[in-house]
């Protein structure tokens, strides 16, 4: 269990995290979603005691991270896969971590096996590809067999096979009753790998809930193709609907359900050729939610490539 309690972090002139307040529960995969620069990594660093909170606090299992006796036995984290001395071998890197938290030596080979880098464990980390470093980072996070796991943008640098592997891996960890907290700027990734999602933008809380809830509550649109588009537009407009687009393909209507549009058309004597409810994709919901919260957005803001 991770608890974020009115957390605020200010770097000299920027407010990186602004009064965040939420909990991450065990047994599910919780996605931490926001555009780049929205404060996800900062929040994770404060959870791990690397950065100091300006106000509020973050606790794990009711304690501040720095108070934990052998912390990596309780919390495993992968923040930055390349944050390893390049001149040291993977095995020695993990052995040093194990020794510092009094973890038995044989565990090092277990996690190396598990992430599939045993064959290169005696090579210097500097020679690793990003994908291999990512796997080493995961091995480090699992080393202490912790009940809480934090991953910052874990799919970056993984090949499709690795991405599939890591999704199943998160699911398995959660099924074992662990707390799994995964950040990403990719809504599509979170849609398939997370159960619960917490959305932030510009350091502020935007919304949270299950993936289903988030798309259900989002405003969907209805695509209508009819005999008389002009008349239908007028009828829709006079019944609190909004017509977004009108062309040969049909009308894109929001504010009304497909049932309501069908009934209005029938009453007005308009023949409907096609009536399709268009449920908002999670991606669109995300774009809507974080609109204006993208720190480095281009004109055509695309959070998937918002580097």
């Amino acid at each position: 269990m991770i608890k974020i309690d009115h957390l605020t972090k200010r770097y000299s002139d920027t407010l990186a995290v602004d009064d965040l307040d939420f909990e991450v529960k065990p047994g599910v995969v919780t996605g931490f979603l926001g555009p780049n620069g929205s404060g996800k990594s900062t929040t994770m660093r404060i959870i791990l005691g690397l950065d100091h909170a300006t106000k509020g606090q973050a606790t794990v299992n009711g304690m501040r991270y720095a108070e934990l006796k052998d912390p990596i036995r309780e919390v495993g984290a992968l923040l930055d896969a390349k944050a390893v001395h390049p001149g040291r071998t993977a095995r020695n890197h993990l052995r040093a971590l194990a020794v510092s938290n009094q973890i038995r030596k044989s565990r090092v080979d277990e996690v190396l096996d598990f992430v599939g880098i045993s064959a290169v464990a005696n090579k210097k980390v500097g020679t690793y590809s990003l994908g291999m470093s990512q796997r080493l980072g995961i091995a480090g996070a699992l080393l202490g067999d912790p009940g809480i796991l934090l991953f910052d943008e874990p799919v970056n640098g993984l090949d499709p096979e690795g991405i599939k592997w890591i999704r199943e891996f998160f699911r398995a960890l959660a099924n074992e009753g662990r707390t799994v907290f995964v950040s990403s700027h990719l809504m599509s990734e979170m849609a398939v790998s997370a159960d619960e999602i917490i959305v932030i933008g510009r350091g502020r809380f935007i919304t949270s809930g299950s993936v289903n809830d988030l798309t259900k509550n989002a405003e969907g649109t209805v695509l209508a193709r009819a005999s008389d588009h002009e008349k239908l537009s007028a009828v829709v407009a006079s019944n609190h609907g909004v017509v977004h687009e009108s062309n040969d393909e049909g009308l894109t209507i929001s504010g009304l359900t497909s049932d309501q549009v069908g009934r209005l058309a029938f009453n007005a004597g308009i023949t409907i050729f096609e009536l399709t409810p268009q449920r908002a994709s999670l991606e669109e919901v995300f774009m809507d939610l974080t609109a204006g919260a993208v720190e480095y957005g281009s004109q055509k803001s695309d959070p998937a490539h918002g580097q």
Partner: peptide
């Protein structure tokens, strides 16, 4: 530790 960024890994193990 700083140039490689490993200080973060080190401090998560020994806060």
């Amino acid at each position: 530790e700083y140039t490689s960024g490993s200080i973060r890994t080190t401090l998560t193990a020994v806060p």
